[in-house]
Nucleic acid binder design. Sequence first.
DNA 1: ACCTGAACACCGTTCAAGT
DNA 2: ACCTGAACACCGTTCAAGT
Lengths: 223, 223
Amino acid sequence: MAVRTRSPERREDALSRERIVAAAVELLDDAGESGLTFRALAARLRTGPGAIYWHVANKSELLIAATDAVLIPATVPGVAGETPRDAIRAVALGVFDAIDVHPWAGTQLSRTPAQPALLRIFERVGRQVQALGVPAAGQFTAASAVLHYILGVAQQNAALARSQEPGTDRTAVLEAAAAVWSGLDAEEYPFTRGVADQLRDHDDREQFLAGIDLILTGMSGPR
Amino acid sequence: MAVRTRSPERREDALSRERIVAAAVELLDDAGESGLTFRALAARLRTGPGAIYWHVANKSELLIAATDAVLIPATVPGVAGETPRDAIRAVALGVFDAIDVHPWAGTQLSRTPAQPALLRIFERVGRQVQALGVPAAGQFTAASAVLHYILGVAQQNAALARSQEPGTDRTAVLEAAAAVWSGLDAEEYPFTRGVADQLRDHDDREQFLAGIDLILTGMSGPR
DNA sequence: ACCTGAACACCGTTCAAGT
DNA sequence: ACCTGAACACCGTTCAAGT
């Protein structure tokens, strides 16, 4: 006797919140932030723009969900036995790498104060600051400093990526920025011109970590 | 004999780049980022939307100019005899205060890599890092860390302000954020919940400076 | 319950026509 | 040289109508 399945077999191409968010991530990666429109998204999902609104309230919610999705790997629980310092570095690098692959997420991450990914990052950093032995009164300041630094870099990398074609690799992006710096007025911008070459050659991932270390060192107080 | 003036008396209400940028700043302050449209701007200037394009290339250029305008006070040359540390704190505070008054500028500041205000801030910070005696190899990293931290805070304050009505004062904005944090799940967000009260009461300007100090302390190396 | 797609109320930007 | 405002090619979002 044939048994009726409780939940009927879903059509392969049935719409769902997950499929919509996944398609949005693809579209953002391929075409950049301006590429995500409900019409383009609907075309990719072989439906009309109105259908998307059955599963997602509006574009803002869609962007929050897409950002959250690509930042999940950055906020997975850390390895057991990790030092607080390594844990903070791991979260920071996770965010950095996610934004390297999905530059648009760097902009979105700090656009909405209630972005869940942002809260997860802050919580993780905060706990590690606690574990580091920072006095209670200084924990909020220390965790905020790390968070804001991460957000600043994320934002900056997103802006840099936006100034080039989507998919341009990081060395080409840095090269373009270095060219601008090198062309600045020598009288007015001696420092910036002076470091233009470093911008061209440097490992920005390495420098990002060095900045984290600067803050972590600062937390242990003046020598 | 009547003398012809070389440049004819300008009509009081003649359009100019300066008047357009000033009106854009007003509109952004009054109505937020979504309030700046060419139609609304044209109405305020008692002209048609097309007229604006004679003086400004497009909306992006207008936003860059508006952001630049409100950040001029933050990048004026410092007081003579100032220590490098005080000079860095002064620039940072200047940016912080400008964004307090014009939250939209916090978003714009890091949206375009070639935003002139951003370059001026970086140059100023960089020179002071140099004056602080940071070894050449570490100057770029140190200046970048300070810049990114400032941008992160600017962005975050802009996002917070955007979540409320334009013109809402800072304590009300912080109160709203604290309410969200207090409502978080106790199991998942112990740290964030724990600092919610500090968010409500704290002087965020003070905390911003404390973060700057953390980085400055870190620059002088581990104790 | 879920999807369709035309329609609405906007945008930024262009451009022929005016002064 | 500068301004006007209608028109173009888009948007996000809604909603009556379908299945």
